[in-house]
Design a protein around this nucleic acid. Structure first.
Lengths: 236, 236
DNA sequence: TCTTCCCACATCCTATAGGATCTCTGGGTA
DNA sequence: TACCCAGAGATCCTATAGGATGTGGGAAGA
């Protein structure tokens, strides 16, 4: 059996547990389950038409992300919602990670600028759609989800260009928590206009070629996000 | 039918998954295995006298720490040694984490000061023992391991008092990599005197009650560690 | 009426078996 | 000599079964 040139590699072989992991992760991030709900091994295995073994492996993996909790001999449960102190700590951790990554990524090369502008445009477009729906009196869950995804992508661009894999790993680990925060703390639609404007400021700062400007812009943005979130948290 | 060295003998039948995880982690951190060595599920299960299922779960957990790598349908292997770029990135990540934690922990309360002084004494004592052995011409692996543990404990004290669980988690995740670095990059005995002196400076800075002084001392210490490590890395 | 005990059910945890895949060795051919 | 191929052995992956543990309801006693 000879190998055809051009077809070698490229196909990532994945075990069954990876598919199971993605399915459960998807289910958790969709927010369809209440915190504290039981996640029975056998039940999930039946629903997915697989054996308990790959489900068990996926649950171990999920446990490391903080999305599920495990109690020995009692099974897995959806993790409880984030409390106020955890929320504050999460913001601090993000601030540290992203400002450091910004400092490392500056001054920006043409590739970073290109991706950043693209992500910024996508974010702005998603923001417009949310604003339109909001003006029409609708609160579209689908659009809100896409908006949050665009926001996450924008920040991910910087992390991907900081040149440090450990920072990227940490950011992705925190990502699940951030997502959880948005589900619990921010029930309504966020402050689209401010966020878009601040993202644009970050892009401009990167484009200026300076080193300190992007860090300052990103710091300002994250601090503002924290302020607005906590204000929304306290009361309406 | 080969057996993995260091894994002979059974294990207690209570809390199997966690026990298996600890045993394998211990084995990996002891440095008894070469990077790239195969970690067969069935082999380990036989050596530990358990079934493959808990071993499999432990391996998933270990995969998240970066100590082992997995290839679908091909099994697990001991992670390859850290290259020069990963080493540099690791130092940067540590610098970010620990300086931020120091800033959050300052000014120090009496509890932090107490623990810090205790850890510093332990570190100094371990350093003396290493220096004595070195003067006698011996390079005691046991003493060196204890010295590194004391060093890790010292830094862990600050992380435990920074008041941010996410920073602590990140630090513990990086801990495994740091340990790996010491095994690969620092074959010989480190610079005991400088490290002890710099730790003492950190303690003093915390004791001064100022806010900026501890951050400066910690930054200086970590930068020096990096310098010395890279110098030791380049040539003898 | 409240507390305590006991038993049946559900679930988790572990062990064993079988199918699928990879690796390696040996022989054949250009 | 170098390359290709085939088959056996070992290993991984998944499925199924049985033992161990936690949970909830009902009955007996104070």
């Amino acid at each position: 059996m000879s190998t055809t040139p051009g077809l070698r590699g490229g196909i990532e072989r994945r075990g069954l547990r990876d598919h199971v992991y993605e399915r459960i992760l998807e289910l958790l991030l969709s927010g369809g389950l209440e915190p504290g709900a039981r996640l029975g091994i056998d039940t999930i295995a039946r629903d997915l038409a697989v054996s308990p073994t790959p489900v068990r492996e996926a649950m171990v993996q999920l446990e490391r992300t903080g999305l599920v909790t495990r109690e020995a001999l009692k099974g897995y449960r959806v993790a409880p919602p984030l409390g106020a102190p955890q929320l504050a700590e999460l913001f601090d951790a993000r601030l540290m990670l992203e400002t450091t990554a910004t400092r490392m990524a500056a001054p920006a090369g043409p590739e970073l600028l290109e991706e950043l502008r693209h992500a910024q445009q996508e974010h702005a477009r998603a923001g417009e759609r949310v604003a339109e729906a909001l003006a029409a009196g609708r609160v579209d869950l689908q659009l809100t989800t896409e908006y949050f995804a665009a926001d996450t992508d924008f920040h991910a661009v910087v992390l991907h260009h900081c040149g440090n894999r450990y920072l990227l790993d940490m950011s992705e680990t925190l990502g699940a928590q951030v997502h959880r925060m948005r589900q619990t703390a921010l029930r309504g639609v966020p402050d689209v206009e401010e966020a878009v404007a601040e993202h644009a400021a970050v892009v401009e700062a990167f484009a200026s070629g300076e080193v300190d400007a992007p860090v300052a812009a990103m710091t300002r943005h994250l601090r503002n996000v924290r302020e607005r979130s906590l204000r929304l948290e306290h009361g309406d």
